[in-house]
Design a protein around this nucleic acid. Structure first.
Length: 428
RNA sequence: GGAGAGAUGGCAGAGUGGUCGAAUGCACCGGUCUUGAAAACCGGCAUGGGUUUGUAGCCCAUCUAGGGUUCAAAUCCCUAUCUCUCCGCCA
């Protein structure tokens, strides 16, 4: 959510900034609603003030043993007037809140303007696209050839976009997750967390999945006016970031750096034609998430640091990648600035997204009322929240299969993963 | 799943219809005293919102959340959530 004061005072600036990311703000409607809110709220509060004053004087008179019938008569229809105003105001505030909750974050000044993913800008690359002296196979052929990926069984058990993994490929997936967690906890200073995979609506509102993107999630109940029950997390960002919802953090405890390996669940509504084959786009996948909760002045440096932590995973695994800064039109709803890491996939002969690292600034913190207070601060200040994948496990496995494949269809196991594979050097 | 009890400020804990945004203690911050510290004493100490040039003042809201009764609700009623105790079941 944007700062309501900034929104009111700088409506035109806000509209311009939002237009850069393709969000059209109805300025005149908002102005009209805001004017109405102002007068209505003042009227309502004045009525409340006079009611409070009269009630108080009744109480005082009674305690002195005086007759209160005269004062009681003054109350008149104040109550019904107040009720009417209150109802009207509540409806108006709900409408304004609905608009506020549906507005995306403002892009940071450093974000390049652009319409879609084609306008993203390469920041740096690491490694060279892997070269082969034989014809490369894609991860499906490799995985099925090794009897490690079983799409047919997944379809039978559940449906499309799920996977059954077997044997050393299943173990490789476990190894990848363990390696990432160990790296982030031992080298990068993150605290490992185990969190719920089902979350309530408040949490989803806090991180911004709701109210706009409910159809991207799996819910435990059909959506009704009473709610949609608990929802499966689309990313561990939701439970990790919501750790600080409705809390005032001690300055001394900042920054908070948390990581978790969780399954993630996405309905992938509206992407039926894309990546239908293989592990790239699944309804259920594992991911190691990095979350940092920092002071506002530290968040831009923290984004660089966090992105670097995700890059270290790819470097450790020896996977070539490039770092992209997303343009205004391609950023996620709550992000002010985002770097994507794209790993080299030989079979697709291109780079594919494997991590997305974002500075949300105070966008989520305002929704969550997540704040900190310095020792000398009278008032608490909204925190800044950041999150990034470090990394998506399934796509990492894809990248390993494809980049480490041999002519005979076997897979050489990256050095750093061998301890997690009981010393195994090759899956054959 | 059954029965019962509870939810108040950072924490503990008073408060059963009216000058209660809330006693008291602890913690915390400032001061006096002290060479320094401790102790003692004095003072301060919630959050959100509105209005406003204002971190001044004034006003509104908030005692888990949402409804209701009333001129007036922390206090009475209903619902939900959560916590605790006992029983049952269970990895």
């Amino acid at each position: 959510m944007l700062d309501p004061k900034f929104l009111r005072n700088e409506l035109e600036v806000t509209a311009e900034l939002l237009a850069k990311r393709g969000f059209i703000l109805d300025v005149s409607r908002l102005t009209a609603l805001e004017e109405k809110r102002k007068s209505l709220q003042v009227e309502t509060e004045e009525l409340q003030a006079s009611r409070n004053a009269i009630s108080k004087s009744i109480g005082q008179a009674k305690s002195r043993g005086e007759d209160v019938s005269e004062i009681m008569a003054k109350v008149g229809d104040l109550g019904s007037q107040l009720d009417a105003k209150k109802t009207e105001l509540a409806e108006l505030l709900a409408e304004l809140n609905g608009i506020a909750m549906s507005m995306p974050n403002l892009p940071d000044d450093a974000v390049p303007a652009g319409a879609d993913e084609n306008d993203n800008v390469e920041v740096r690359t690491w490694g060279e696209p892997t070269k082969f002296d034989f014809e490369v196979k894609d991860h499906l052929d490799l995985g099925e050839g090794l009897d490690g990926l079983d799409f047919k069984s997944a379809v039978k058990i559940t449906g499309s976009r799920f996977i059954v993994m077997k044997g050393q490929i299943a173990r490789l997936t476990r190894a990848v997750g363990q390696y990432m967690l160990d790296l982030h906890t031992e080298k990068h200073g993150y605290t490992e967390m185990y969190v719920p995979l089902l979350v309530n609506e408040e949490s989803l509102l806090g991180t911004g999945q709701l109210p706009k993107f409910g159809e991207d999630l799996f819910h435990t109940k059909p959506a009704t006016e009473e709610g949609q029950g608990l929802s499966l997390i689309p990313t561990a960002e939701v439970p990790l970031t919501n750790m600080v919802r409705d809390t005032i953090v001690e300055e001394a405890n900042l920054p908070l750096k948390m990581t978790a390996l969780t399954s993630c669940f996405r309905s992938e509504a509206g992407s039926y034609g894309r990546d239908t084959r293989g592990l790239i786009r699944q309804h259920q996948f594992d991911k190691v998430e990095l979350v940092q909760i920092v002071k506002p002045e530290d968040s831009m440096a923290a984004l660089e640091e966090l992105t670097g932590h995700a890059e270290k995973v790819l470097q450790g695994l020896g996977l070539p990648y490039r770092t992209m800064i997303l343009c205004t039109g391609d950023m996620g709803f709550g992000a002010a600035k985002t770097y994507d890491l794209e790993v080299w996939l030989p079979a697709q002969n291109t780079y594919r997204e494997i991590s997305s690292c974002s500075n949300m600034k105070d966008f989520q913190a305002r929704r969550m009322q997540a704040r900190y207070r310095g020792v000398n601060d009278k008032k608490p200040t909204l925190l800044h929240t950041l999150n990034g994948s470090g990394l998506a496990v399934g796509r990492t496995v894809v990248a390993i299969l494809e980049n480490y494949q041999n002519a005979d269809g076997s897979i050489t196991i990256p050095e750093v993963l061998r301890p997690y594979m009981r010393g195994l050097e090759k899956i054959a």
